[in-house]
């Protein structure tokens, strides 16, 4: 790797030449060293890095844990706990793993936090770049397919143990509000799956969160009830999975919850609102620990 490689493309000409509407394609052609997992030569992932499963020693990097997503009558809600773990250690108590990627979509991440955050950052720029160049945003399926190709790009790193599993949610502005909330999941190879049942969860606590959602999810519920269901599911995940952080009332660290509706677009719910919901859930669990 050359450390002296320029940060911006070689010349003004690259900007002026006719080119793709995709930010990733433009950067791949002109400044590949800026892309995640690239070291400047031909887009290969760093080959020598021994992964947790490959080499003789482990590389302990932070991992994100549980994300839940569920649809409701007005759109879709996505929520994530705040813990990142590295082996048995809590790497960060207040990491944010749910990101608003444009006016009507959001992504939650589980897996290698570093790679995942870079991927989401690139994905957000990609969506905005396309929207600005073309004057219209990508369709919801266009966005989710783009994310699939970015997950697939990471396959080399995933083989070494640095798996990234995003959970994509969006509001399809071309559909009726009751059908507009969409959830799309991915596997490490870039496989893309629509979740038509209306709820899903990824990460280490997802088994418990999904069981909880199976019982509680109501597609015809309103926003407030749906936020409550999401917080309940995260509580259940944290209850049984050590890597998932429960609500931290001492430090006032609460789950990140994003709602996407037709009128307001993607909105991060305020800490005050979530704190009130969390306190209700905790009070409920004090009386009945099983929820």
């Amino acid at each position: 790797m050359e450390f002296g490689s320029p940060v911006t493309p070689a010349g003004i000409g690259a900007y002026l030449a006719p080119g793709p509407s995709s930010f990733t394609d433009f950067v791949t052609a002109n400044a590949p060293h800026l892309l995640p997992g690239r070291t400047g030569d031909a887009g290969r992932p760093p080959a020598a890095a021994p992964g947790p499963r490959g080499g003789g020693h482990t590389l302990d990097v932070p991992h994100g844990t549980t994300i839940v997503a569920l649809t409701f009558s007005g759109g879709v809600v996505i929520a994530g706990d705040r813990r990142a773990t590295s082996g048995n250690v809590i790497a960060q108590r207040d990491i944010e793993k749910v990101f608003i990627t444009d006016s009507h979509s959001a992504v939650g991440i589980a897996g290698s936090a570093g790679i995942a955050i870079q991927m989401v950052r690139l994905f957000s720029v990609e969506l905005e770049h396309y929207e600005k160049l073309e004057g219209v945003p990508l369709s919801l399926d266009g966005k989710s397919n783009k994310l699939a190709s970015m997950v697939q790009q990471n396959l080399g790193a995933a083989m070494q143990g640095f798996v990234v599993v995003p959970l994509f949610v969006g509001y399809d502005t071309e559909k009726e509000p009751a059908q507009a909330g969409r959830i799309v999941t991915y596997d490490a190879t870039g496989g893309r799956y629509d979740e038509w049942l209306g709820y899903h969860s990824v990460g280490s606590g997802s088994v418990f969160a999904k069981s909880s959602l199976k019982k509680l999810h109501d597609p015809s519920a309103d926003l407030a009830a749906t936020v409550r269901t999401a917080v309940e599911a995260l509580y259940d995940a944290a209850d049984d999975d050590t890597a998932t952080g429960g609500p931290d009332l001492v430090r006032r660290i609460f789950p990140v919850v994003v709602s996407i509706t037709g009128d307001d677009g993607a909105v991060r719910r305020s800490d005050e609102e979530i704190e009130a919901v969390v306190r209700e859930v905790v009070t409920g669990r004090t009386e009945r620990p099983g929820g």
Binding site: I12, Y15, F23, F26, L122, V125, H129
Partner: peptide, 18 residues
């Protein structure tokens, strides 16, 4: 239009790298 695209590209590359 060429100049507009160039400006958007430059701004996005700059904002992404820094």
């Amino acid at each position: 239009e060429t100049l507009r695209n160039a400006g958007i590209r430059m701004a996005d590359v700059r904002g992404y790298s820094y």
